[in-house]
Design a protein around this nucleic acid. Sequence first.
RNA 1: AGGGGUAUCGCCAAGCGGUAAGGCACCAGAUUUUGAUUCUGGCAUUCGUUGGUUCAAAUCCAGCUACCCCUGCCA
Length: 540
Amino acid sequence: MAVVAENFIEQIINQELESGKVSSVQTRFPPEPNGYLHIGHAKSLCINFGIKEKYQGKCNLFFDDTNPSKEKTEFVDAIKKDIEWLGFKWDKQTFASDYFEDIYNFAIELIKMDKAFVCDLSAEEISKNRGTLTEKGKESPYRNRSIEENLKLFTEMREGKYADGEKCLRAKIDMASPNINMRDPVIYRILRQTHHRTGDKWCIYPMYDYAHPICDYMQGVTHSICTLEFEDHRPLYDWVGITLGFVNKPRQIEFARLNVTNLVMSKRYLKKLVEEGAVDGWDDPRMPTLAGIRNRGIPAEALKDFCGRIGVAKANSEVQISYLDAVTREYLNLHAERVMGVLKPLKVTITNYEGEEKLKFDVNPNLEGVQREIDFSKEIYIDRDDFSLNPPPKYFRLKKDGYVRLKNAYIIKCDEVIENEKGEVVELKCTYFPNSKSGSDTSGIKVKGVIQWVNAKTAVPIEARKYEYLLKDEEYAGQDFSERMNYDSVHKFNALVEPYILENEDKSFQVLRTGYFKVLQTKDGKVLSEIVALKDNFNK
RNA sequence: AGGGGUAUCGCCAAGCGGUAAGGCACCAGAUUUUGAUUCUGGCAUUCGUUGGUUCAAAUCCAGCUACCCCUGCCA
C-alpha cells in the first residue's frame, strides 16, 4: 500500500480539531437505493470510511430514500453487500425515511417562523417564475399567505386532501438570488407512491436539499462529504441548518467525483444496459459496478488501494483505466496464487517420456517455500500462441526444431509438427531432456522461453471468457450500446486449466503471462473469467 | 457585469512565500525457470496567461484565458 499525502478534506478536519470547532468526527455514506454502487462510489466510500478510521470517528450507512418512485429494497441489499465486500463497517444503518416525522415537524417549524409557504403554482409555473441564469425570478402569488393558512394547508397536504402536484411546500428565501437553488426552493411535494419502507403512510415527501441537512444533523454528522455538483446547494444546506437553529451544524465539503477514461458510469445508462439484457446483470464483469468488479476478480484491497492512490481533490480529472489495472497487478503479484491454464490448447506428445510424476509448483514466488504439486506426463497441452510455425525474430517460445522450457518441468525440443488436411497445426511431437528438470538442471541447454502447460489427464475443460470493460468512445457515445456489447465485449475460449483452480472458487489467480482468472458461477455452470491485467510485453 | 468551482509532467497528485514530492505510464540497463516480478538510472529551469508586490512567488495581489457545474415538485 502506497503512503498517500493528507488530502484537503483531512486538512480541514485537522484544523477544526485543532481549533476545537469539533471534538470528534462523524461522516456518512449516503447512497440513494436506486441502483447498484459503482467504482465512483468506491471513492466516496473510501473517503468517508477512511476518515472514520483515521480519526477513530463514526460513519453511518445512510440511505437517502426521499423519492419512493425510484427506490427499491433490492438495491439496499445489494449496496450493503458491496460495502461489506470492501470490508467497511458502518456504525449505524439509517434511512432518510427513519426521520420523516422529524423532517415534517421541522417543516411546521419553518412555517411558524414564516420561512416556508404552501404554493399552489404548478410545476411548470414554478419553473417559469424561477427566472433564468441571468434574470431574477418572480415571487409566487402565494408567498404571503398567513402562517395559519400555511399550517392548515400543509396539514391537509399530509392528510391527502390534494392531488399530486396540486400544491407544494416552498422555503421562503429569495427569488432574486443569483443562486437558483435559493429561489424559494420546493421542499415538500405531494407524491402518491408506495415507499419501499414506509408504504403508503405518507403522500408527501421531502426534497433532498431540505431533508439532507436535517438527517445529517439528527445523526450527529460533523462532515457531510459530497461531490462538486452540490457546491451550489451548500448555501441551501446551510440555510436549513441555520434557520432551524442547529447547534454545531454539520459542514458540507465537496470533492471531484471519479471519472475513469472511457468507462460508462452513469447510473441511468447502466440501468438501461441491465434492463435491455445487453449484459448479464448489474454484476456482469464488464460493468463498472462494485459487483461487476468483484466478479471480474479484482480484490477489494486492490480497489481500495486504487482509491487511495488517485487522491482527493477539487479539480475535475479523469483517471486512466490502466491505473486500476496497474494497482490490481501489483496486489495480485504479491498475493495471488499462480496457476497454469491454456486458452487455446495444442496437444504435445513427449515421445521419450514414460510414466507420470508430481512436480513442485510455487503457489506464489513471494511466499517462499509454499508449494503444491502438479502432474506431469507424456501428454500435455500448451497454448497455441506459444508455438509458431513462422516465428518472427526474437521469438522465445516454441518453434520447429526449437527448444523451450515447460514451466517448473523440463526443457523440450519440437521434433515434428502434425497438421491436418487444412494445414492447421494439431499436435506437436517433442522430446524432453531428463537432466533438465526444474531446480536440478544439469543439461547445460540455454533456453530463453518458458511456457505454461497442463497435463492432458488431469486438466479440466472449461469455458473461459475474457471480458472487456464497457467502454464508451466517441464512435459509440450516446448511442445504443447493446448491440456492440454482445458483439465484441466477451471473448470465449474452450480452455484447459489445472483442476486446482476449481477447488478455490472466489479467489483470483494470477495466470502465467496472460492475466488473472476467477471462476464465476453462472446459470449454465462454471465459467472461468480471464481478465488481462498483467504486463504483456512479448508482443512488442 | 448571473452565480459557483477548477487550472502543477501523457494520466492522477503533493506543494500553503525560501527556490518543483510521489504514484501510473514511458525510456535505458542489470538480474530472472512467468518476455512477469525485482533492481538501477532517466523523465517539469518550470507550475493556464499577462502584469504587480517581494531579497525571494506554483504559492500573495490584479487583469485576462480555458474548462466544469447550476434554470427537477431527482439525488
